[in-house]
């Protein structure tokens, strides 16, 4: 018997209310068809979604976490990039 494991897939689900697909987890499957069926059974059994995307985890590229300082910290001191310096006139709700 082969001990080789099936490839890992990342699963993205779009909920009824949501506009975008959200990452919900991962699973193993032999190919994309079975990955979608497995995602249906594992991640939508409580009506969580109306659309499923799967992508082989091999195809996901991530940043190097040791470079976090260089990548993300410079933004911390640039508070002027947030639109928080405007006075919102009275009577404007939902802001």
């Amino acid at each position: 018997m082969s001990k080789k494991e099936w490839p890992l897939w990342e699963v993205f689900i779009r909920s009824k209310q949501g506009l975008n697909h959200k990452h919900v987890g991962s699973l193993r499957a032999a190919d994309s068809t079975m990955a979608i069926e497995n995602a249906r059974d594992v991640y939508t059994r409580r009506s969580e979604g109306i659309s499923i995307w799967v992508i082989e985890s091999n195809n996901v590229f991530a940043n190097d976490s040791s470079e976090s300082d260089a990548l993300f910290e410079p933004a911390d001191s640039k508070i002027y990039r947030h639109p928080t310096f405007y006075d919102v006139p009275d009577g404007i709700s939902h802001m």
């Binding site: 099936w6 699973l27 193993r28 499957a29 069926e37 497995n38 059974d41 594992v42 059994r45």
Partner: peptide, 11 residues
């Protein structure tokens, strides 16, 4: 045989 299929069969 695998977690995913265990859930599929139970469903």
């Amino acid at each position: 045989p695998i977690l995913e299929e265990d859930i599929a069969l139970t469903n």
